[in-house]
Amino acid sequence: MDAATPTATAAGDLPWGEVWGQDDAVRRLRAAAADPAALTHAWLITGPPGSGRSTLARAFAAALIAEPGDDNAARQVLAGTHPDYTALRTEGVIISIKDARALVERSYFAPSLGRYRVIVMEDADRMAERTSNVLLKALEEPPERTVWVLCAPSEADLLPTIRSRVRTLRLRDPEVADVARLIALRTGVDPQLAEQSARHAQRHIGMAQRLATDAAARARRDDMLQAVLRVRGVSTAVEAAAEIVAGATDDAKALTAERDEAERAQLLSTLGIAPGAAVPPAVRAQLKALEDDQKRRATRSLRDGIDRVLTDLQSLYRDVLMLQFGRGDDLINLELATTLHAVAEAWSPQRTLTVLDDIAETRERMEQNVSPVLALESMLITVAHGRIL
């Protein structure tokens, strides 16, 4: 089977048709769904961003809930509308204790229509320790017909107490050529653009698809890299940091503005308020709650966007390091080869490693709610001077 075709038999093979390139994982989960004796009550699906963790989790949930051959129930699960399926993907920076407790409470309900009740937590790595402890009891004493499916980049992103109570399923990291073929198949873009997008996205399928179909996203990525390559001192580091935050903000707005407006319009319509009419005081609290949720989502979207820029910067200086060690055959940023060769010749490998280490530390600091501008300024000063000041 070609690696860029959907896993299983075909795209119409419910519920596995949308799972791509994860044959071994699908075989294991098919077997578990078909044999109660082989089924574990809690699973952890790990893999790099864009590897399809959430897609696989939904397909597994559909296979567990729906009776064999019941395509209607499977479609309900895949659409997120089946009463025995609950999924949580936090819209904030972290998963709140309130949301975790709501999931735990729901997990104790017996399935109403399906074979099992399935709880999917798509961002399990975004739990603070005290939130993880809320989940722990449900994993220690699970109801008989409830299955938990957690998703995270790696096992290390969860507490040892959580890891010890789940069965881990690690997804494979797809090749650039495989992702490029999939993107070309899905979007119809030129194969050369699909290959560039897959390479720049570092095999992240969702990001590769966005780069392939959104010229503005491609331009923003290029602008961010060029801004960093122009850094020579403190003043240019400050300018570049501001440019990165502004670009990430624009990117976040592009992703959330349309959704925010649609949510607001839907809420007002549900409340019987005509477009353009004044909002009565009695319903302002509901509108305020929606706006607060949207602000939290915007904060996460901004931080995710900055993290994406930092990931791109890691790819940039990874390329420099590859060139310094005589490896120019596997560059991520091939279009910048001339500039990267110049940096590789001007810098020592130790300086490149120092910059890479500081970028990694900056990504960690961003997870701790450090000011994005200050974190980026500090990191870019390291880029300018070749040492952490």
Rank of each mutant, 00 (worst) to 15 (best):
E261A: 15
E144W: 04
Y108T: 13
L78H: 00
Y108S: 11
S315I: 04
P191A: 12
D251Y: 03
A201L: 04
A57D: 07
H82W: 10
A278V: 11
R58A: 14
E258L: 13
R218G: 15
E361T: 03
L150N: 06
D157I: 05
R75V: 10
V370R: 04
D307A: 14
A66D: 04
W347T: 06
R53F: 01
E377K: 05
D293S: 13
A248S: 15
T362Q: 00
R106P: 01
E18D: 14
E129K: 03
R363Y: 01
A100N: 03
V343R: 13
T90R: 02
F109E: 10
P142W: 06
F109N: 10
A217L: 10
A11V: 13
M322L: 15
V77G: 04
N133P: 02
L268D: 09
M366Q: 08
A262D: 13
Y85H: 13
T249A: 03
T354A: 14
V77Q: 02
R170Y: 03
A246C: 02
D307M: 14
F109Y: 13
L380I: 07
V166P: 06
T40G: 14
R318A: 07
D71P: 02
E105G: 06
H41S: 06
P15W: 09
R221A: 04
A57E: 03
A337S: 13
A73I: 02
W16H: 00
R126L: 12
G80T: 02
V120G: 06
D84N: 06
R115E: 06
D214S: 11
A138D: 10
R363A: 14
F109Q: 11
G12P: 07
A201Q: 05
G47W: 01
T168L: 11
A66G: 03
A274Y: 08
L380M: 07
P143N: 08
L39S: 10
F325G: 13
D319I: 10
R218I: 01
A375H: 09
R218W: 09
T131I: 00
I388A: 03
L290I: 08
D2W: 08
D330E: 12
A375P: 08
G114D: 07
S301I: 02
A3E: 14
N72F: 11
P143E: 01
I65S: 00
E263I: 02
P6Y: 06
V93W: 05
